[in-house]
């Protein structure tokens, strides 16, 4: 009996020793990959940007074309993210709380922008709204410009970012079921009260996460926007497009300086996410301790 226990313990220890090595190896390789593929490029971007000193760095960033690219990027993000927020919540609500015909088709369609190449997404808008496109004539008659202008860029950004919020919320809401909503209705809450007091607080984590991902994607989108933008400097260039133009002009320092601006935006978003998560969990644990 005791020998069995001893040998079992020995096997367990051996397994743990083996595990410890495997664990260290895995952690090390994860760090190496992280350093190689994420930290090194980050370092490269910053060091290239600052190669000629802070003076050149700020000149490149504060140059009017760069500022207008920044403005356009923020406009595209500012319009597409709130719209996606509304769309994502409504789509996830529909899919998870109701049974209806064509539900799986809707879920598949939400995923479409993930599987379609962004370039094709851009081309679709050119074919639809471009001068030679289906609505091109009508649009030019009414003096509305979509392609090679701000609306096209917003549309293209919207298209590629559609799945983010909905995809994040659907599994979460499906898992949570409908009982809390039913309880709210039984207690006399109207639709809006039910959504605001019960559904929204339950999905806020997923929602914040989805919005963060959506914002990051909207800022960084290149392919679709590139097709519809027309690359008019100072007018229809977003930050990623501006970086490409500068790079193609062998203006590496300026390109990397603007790239680091994009990077800074990304870091701000990450910090926002971290801050909101920490705040939420602190609120919760404060409530727990009372």
């Amino acid at each position: 009996m005791s020998s069995i226990t001893v040998s079992a313990a020995a096997t367990r220890n051996a397994a743990r020793r083996g595990n410890a090595w495997a664990r260290r190896l895995l952690i090390l390789s994860a760090w190496l990959a992280f350093a190689l593929f994420l930290l090194l490029p980050l370092y490269m971007v910053l060091s290239e940007a600052l190669k000629l000193g802070f003076g050149t760095f700020f000149t490149s960033i504060l140059e009017p074309d760069a500022l207008s690219a920044l403005k356009l990027t923020l406009i595209a993000v500012g319009i597409s993210v709130p719209l996606n927020l509304v769309f994502g919540v409504s789509a996830a609500w529909c899919v998870s709380k109701f049974e209806f015909r064509g539900k799986s088709l809707l879920v598949t369609l939400i995923d479409l922008p993930f599987s379609v190449s962004p370039v094709i997404a851009g081309l679709i808008y050119v074919l639809l709204f471009g001068a030679q496109g289906y609505f091109g004539k009508w649009l030019s008659e009414h003096d509305i410009q979509i392609v090679f202008a701000v609306p096209g860029i917003v549309l293209a950004t919207l298209f590629v970012t559609v799945p983010f919020v909905a995809r994040e919320l659907i599994p979460l809401m499906q898992e949570q079921g409908t009982q809390e909503e039913e309880a709210a209705r039984l207690l006399g809450a109207n639709g809006w009260q039910m959504f605001w007091h019960v559904t929204l607080p339950n999905i806020k984590w997923g929602l914040i996460y989805g919005v963060v991902l959506c914002t990051a994607r909207a800022m960084g989108e290149f392919g679709a926007v590139s097709v519809v933008s027309g690359h008019i400097r100072g007018y229809t260039n977003t930050l990623p497009l501006h970086v490409e133009i500068l790079y193609n002009e062998y203006n590496h320092v300026a390109a990397f300086s603007v790239a680091s601006l994009l990077l800074a935006l990304a870091l701000i978003i990450l910090l926002l996410k971290q801050w909101s998560e920490a705040r939420l969990s602190r609120l919760k644990s404060a409530g727990d301790e009372e």
């Binding site: 009982q179 809390e180 039913e182 309880a183 709210a184 209705r185 039984l186 006399g188 809450a189 109207n190 007091h197 019960v198 607080p201 339950n202 409530g287």
Partner: peptide, 21 residues
């Protein structure tokens, strides 16, 4: 509507609002 029937309902899995005290 459910809201106007004024019934109290107790669920098998409680359905308490998880984010509320």
């Amino acid at each position: 509507d459910v809201r106007d029937r004024n019934v109290g309902f107790v669920f098998q899995h409680y359905a308490l609002f998880r984010h509320m005290t």
